[in-house]
């Protein structure tokens, strides 16, 4: 899709390129400067023990606002209209409920585990840890398989470099940048750079939303969505749009995002007390709300902008057919490139790219650590030396990096990025929900039930569009996800009742 061929030009100028370069170098320099002082402190994780409240909140919301989140949310706003807001509402409500009740996260914090596979071992034994760690890593790597492509589509849309060859060049360049960034040690938990990111992204996101409303007009936005999407553009329960099953699925996704996903669990388990875990979740409900809501609105604004421009409408909203997901992903950055003045465009792009590198870095570390610590190391009777672990982690980081480059270039998405991420994540979390809830709250949950429940997660791959095409079926990904969750729960209960544990794992205490 070459937009310049149809006369669509971005307002991205040399000034913006300069801002991006200076900001990215600056944010890395801040991290390197701070690290000189703190190289001897190794047991402190961000948002954790003793972090002051404002910096804690800034860090927490800053880490939730990644470029990939903004991209998939904007696409969902573009394709779903205002009805997509229910996803943000569901994730805020679940985070608030988890904060008020301590559901899942408080018992995990009390067990003093730091990762989900560690919980598996403490509750169900060594074998469940290895299987669970393998599924977690596979699901997580598949889940981040489209990160590089989403980041590259953002760069293409905002800079106007929209030819197909640009995608390959930008994806490769971004991967090299991310690997260099990770090799520098990553800024994953340097709170000062997280704070700078929070301020920049908050100001630029709110300013962009206000500019969108000013440019398009609120009534025009409502009327255009109403005219082109009808009831389905506003009512999330409308069968022509999302439908009731999708809304229920989103509440599960909200619970997963805040209490079951590995990165969230690490944060919860590193807090100094049970009270601070609950407080963190109550505050983070604002972050979970905003990280989706504002990008949804930018996606809706892009939809209205494209509908008002005949040359763009023919590309992004073709008559009688749905646009390709890769095209709808590019709608928001193209809209920003036309809305924002030079300078502000560079600031937004710089903040987004810095967030992209930080998110990518922490996920690369997360999944390579899971593979090293939870899959490979437990297979050796005497464990692995620290040197071997470090080497293995580095090999996994580079291997995963190459995988997501190849996967992003060759995988035919065929559905909204959010739905792809929900289903690829479901391979892990459908089983994990059952193991966590029953493992923490039901004494009779057994090892056999855990094995069966974990394995059922593979059924979620039926929710991926290319798999459905190969099987010749068409089922909503929400229905697939809900059925697999029900199956995981049923197998956990049946397996536990039919094959109860004779002995609890030695270090598990009720």
């Amino acid at each position: 899709m070459d937009l310049s061929a149809v006369g669509i030009q971005s307002s991205f100028r040399i000034l913006d390129w300069g801002i991006v370069a200076v900001y990215l170098i600056g944010i890395v320099a801040v991290g390197v400067y701070i690290k000189r002082y703190i190289s001897n402190v190794t047991d402190f994780i961000v948002a954790g023990r003793g972090l002051k409240i404002f910096l804690g909140i800034a860090t927490m919301i800053g880490t939730e606002l990644g470029l990939v989140t903004v991209m998939y949310s904007a696409q969902k706003g573009f394709t779903g209209g205002f009805a997509a807001f229910h996803i943000a509402l569901a994730s805020a409500i679940t985070a608030l409920v988890v904060g008020l009740t301590g559901f899942i996260v408080v018992p995990l914090r009390k067990m003093k585990v730091m990762t989900i596979p560690e919980f598996y071992e403490r509750r169900f034994g060594h074998g469940v840890r290895i299987l669970g760690g393998t599924i977690l890593a596979l699901s997580g790597i598949l889940n981040m398989g489209m990160f590089l492509k989403a980041g590259s589509i953002f760069v293409m849309g905002i800079t106007g470099m929209t030819e197909d060859i640009h995608l390959k060049i930008i994806m490769t360049a971004l991967l090299v940048m991310v690997l260099l960034y990770t090799a520098l040690g990553g800024m994953v938990s340097v709170v000062v750079s997280d704070y700078i990111q929070f301020v920049l992204l908050s100001v630029s996101l709110v300013a962009t939303c206000v500019l969108s409303i000013k440019s398009l007009g609120w009534h025009n936005i409502i009327e255009t969505v109403s005219a082109l999407k009808g009831q389905a553009g506003f009512d999330p329960f409308d069968a022509e749009g999302f439908g009731a099953s999708y809304v229920i699925w989103m509440f599960f996704l909200g619970l997963v995002s805040c209490a079951v996903w590995q990165t969230a669990v690490i944060r919860a388990c590193s807090m100094e007390s049970v009270r601070s875990v609950k407080r963190l979740y109550v505050w983070s409900s604002v972050g979970f709300l905003i990280r989706n809501l504002l990008p949804f609105f930018l996606g809706i604004s892009a939809f209205v902008y494209m509908a008002d421009d005949p040359s763009l409408k023919s590309i992004f909203l073709p008559e009688g057919a749905d646009a390709d997901p890769q095209v709808t992903l590019m709608a928001m950055p193209v809209f920003l490139s036309r809305l924002l003045p030079a300078g502000l465009l560079g600031i937004v792009a710089a903040g987004m790219l810095a967030a992209f590198m930080s998110t990518h870095d922490s996920y690369l570390l997360c999944w390579s650590s899971v593979l090293t610590q939870d899959v490979v190391a437990p297979c050796f009777k005497n464990g692995l030396s620290s040197k071997a672990r470090l080497l293995l982690t580095r090999v996994f980081i580079v291997t995963i990096g190459i995988f997501i480059l190849v996967w992003g270039l060759w995988y035919d998405l065929g559905q909204d990025l959010w739905d792809y991420m929900a289903i690829s994540g479901a391979i892990y979390f459908t089983g994990a929900i059952a193991l966590l809830i029953f493992g923490l709250y039901w004494k009779r949950a057994s090892k056999v039930g855990a094995y069966l429940s974990l394995t059922s997660g593979f059924g979620a791959v039926v929710g991926l569009k290319p798999v459905q095409t190969a099987l010749g079926i068409e089922v909503s990904s929400a229905i697939v996800g809900l059925v697999v969750i029900a199956l995981a729960v049923a197998l956990m209960v049946a397996g536990s009742l039919l094959y109860p544990d004779r002995n609890k794992p030695s270090d598990y205490k009720e």
Binding site: I61, F198, S202, V206, W218, I222, G230, F234, V286, F297
Partner: peptide, 27 residues
Amino acid sequence: MNFWIYFWTVFFFASLAVFAGVAIVVS
């Protein structure tokens, strides 16, 4: 449909205002 239009309008502007407030205080 009118209910949902009003609901999402109030929801969006209230959330934007809360977030802007939180962002200023936290910054």
